[in-house]
């Protein structure tokens, strides 16, 4: 019985991974220039009058329903924009290289949500600064909350 269970786990787990990898590749494989240096100056930035920060939980990259609502409001602007820049950030806790990766996961999460809503993936640029560029340099819960973010800019 135990071995049978093991077999089931063994056979299901790769399937799950296979699917997940396939989907994410489908969604984003069209764009490998995500990390290219952005050629857009801040003067070209489109003012949407929307909050441009999406917040996250500690060590998490998933979007809350509030965040999803906020991103949805961006969709119309995003469809008309020339380029969209998503900048992922983390709070100071945890290690720097891991946070660099986590910031990227956060930005990608926002990117994928925009794509689902019909924004062309080719114009979305993603970058992570990890914990290197905090908004608030203090070491407390309030500061950390502000620093765990993705910044959205439209051009």
């Amino acid at each position: 019985m135990k071995t049978f269970n093991k077999i089931i786990i063994l056979s299901i787990f790769p399937l799950v991974i296979g699917c997940a990898t396939q989907v994410s590749d489908l969604v984003t494989s069209t764009n490998y220039s995500s990390a290219e240096s952005d050629k857009y100056e801040s003067v070209d930035k489109i003012d949407t009058n929307l909050d441009d920060l999406i917040y996250f939980e500690f060590d998490k990259a998933s979007l809350s329903s509030d965040s999803k609502d906020l991103i949805s409001e961006y969709v119309e602007f995003a469809k008309n924009a020339k380029a969209i820049r998503l900048e992922g950030h983390c709070d100071e806790r945890g290690t720097r290289e891991y946070n660099l990766a986590l910031g990227e996961k956060r930005a990608i999460e926002v990117k994928n949500y925009l794509i689902i809503k019909g924004v062309s993936s080719s114009k979305i640029k993603v970058i992570s600064y990890g914990e290197e560029k905090p908004i608030d340099i203090n070491s407390n819960e309030n500061a950390w909350k502000k620093n765990r973010r993705v910044e959205i800019s439209l051009f």
């Binding site: 093991k6 786990i9 063994l10 787990f13 790769p14 399937l15 991974i17 296979g18 990898t21 396939q22 590749d25 489908l26």
Partner: peptide
């Protein structure tokens, strides 16, 4: 092409995924 990617991923996952958390 996608299918072959998928199959490769599957094979690779079977070979490399760390099951230590289950065992």
């Amino acid at each position: 092409l996608l299918n072959s990617i998928f199959v490769h991923m599957l094979l690779f996952a079977i070979l490399t995924v760390d099951f230590s958390i289950f065992v």
